[in-house]
Design a protein around this nucleic acid. Structure first.
Lengths: 233, 233
DNA sequence: ACCTGAACACCGTTCAAGT
DNA sequence: ACCTGAACACCGTTCAAGT
């Protein structure tokens, strides 16, 4: 009963990894399962519920070691290495800075391994047990950093937004070929881009996205310390 | 020739505003235009190009006054009030803090007025002339704040990510009913959520999202100042 | 209890014809 | 130059049958 659901979910995730979210259709899943599309419905409800479950399946892998009990679908699947590295780093040891960094890196690694997740994550509240547990780890880290209780939930949302948004921008293409607007310089009505002009040399070298992510994490930690210093608002 | 394209785009945007992005089909647009679906292709290319153009149409309204020349589609459309308020605030006057805040509020207002934009914005680089101009305003503001040139593009991306991510989370539902996890407390394997427990009172009151957005903007300004103080890395 | 098959109301897009 | 109509290869989902 539950194994069949897990099998369907596993096949759906594999399909998304291989051919993108657009290729995840009831008909395509059914073909791989070896069954009629309609036979899927008792197990997954409908298409929206399937997408929810696929995202939940992924978020479950963001947890620190010890949290993942039995079950959780067929062993492995593609991209498993990145997830496990991420999950290992997201444990409860270390300073709040290390733990926040580990969770952030794990989240980015999951989206890198499963880019289709970026298309789903902004449309669903973090209400699964796995998500709530990750949020709890962030709450604990922020409290330990000295952030006032009244500011913790907001800061958690801002942190998550930066991390998820960064990963989604990478996976989706927003951090694309936009950084060399030289082709536009002449075609603007007023003809000038003063900011770009002042940054000409800085905009010429290609971006190291790993380094940028680390710099963003470091700056967020800086912000958290500043908020902690100022105390309750 | 160009008027027909503008008419098609306007109808597509109106359709998305009224019934969501999923309702924007070639067939539905064609019906409102009063034409066969195939008659649209010479004007818009294909579905992906249509979505690109729809987003571009919106981003054009994020510009400060003076930037919008003639053209730019049919006058008005639904939600015009919010956009115009946003556009008015995003001008070039004031301190860098005021200008950053104005651009951020304008961007959020656009997504609030057209929630479907949130589904598109992470998947497309900011390469249209309108987008590049907005990025240039952010560059200029960051330079004025004293941020080192080598850090400006990264900080611009982080800023945009927070603002776009916040708006997308609101519009998409990520900032949903997740803030009351009391129902989950008992169903977790280890049974405890220490972070949530410490925040019990803070998590009980409903969130004022306008205030949260303003607090996020203020904190980003704080971070910009800290980065400016530390100078080049 | 579990699955199938036909059907319904949709998609985006191609291609040959029309005027 | 601009548009139509039929067709192709898809969708998610309902519903009545099958075993």
């Amino acid at each position: 009963m539950a194994e069949k659901r897990a099998e369907i979910l596993d096949i759906a995730v594999t399909l998304a990894d291989e051919r993108g979210l657009a290729a995840v259709s009831m008909r395509a899943i059914a073909e791989r399962v070896g069954v009629t599309p309609m036979a899927l419905y008792p197990y997954i409800g409908n298409k929206t519920a399937l997408l929810d479950a696929m995202l939940g399946h992924l978020l479950g892998q963001l947890q620190p070691p010890g949290a993942e009990a039995a079950g959780a679908g067929g062993a492995g699947g593609p991209g498993g290495a990145a997830e496990e590295r991420g999950a290992d780093e997201a444990g409860e040891a270390g300073t709040w800075r290390e733990r926040l960094g580990a969770i952030a890196r794990a989240a980015r690694a999951v989206v890198t391994a499963h880019p289709w997740a970026a298309e789903l994550v902004f449309a669903r509240p973090a209400v699964t047990p796995d998500s709530v547990r990750t949020v709890d780890l962030l709450y604990t880290a922020l409290l330990e950093a000295g952030v006032a209780a009244g500011e913790v939930p907001r800061l958690e949302r801002m942190l998550s937004t930066v991390v998820i948004g960064f990963a989604a921008s990478e996976a989706g293409g927003r951090f694309g070929a936009a950084e060399d607007p030289r082709g536009f310089r002449g075609m603007l009505p007023d003809g000038t881009l003063p900011g770009h002009a002042q940054l000409a040399t800085a905009l010429e070298c290609p971006v190291d996205w790993d380094a940028e992510f680390e710099a963003d994490i470091a700056d967020l930690a800086l912000l958290i310390e500043a908020v902690a210093r100022r105390g309750a608002p």
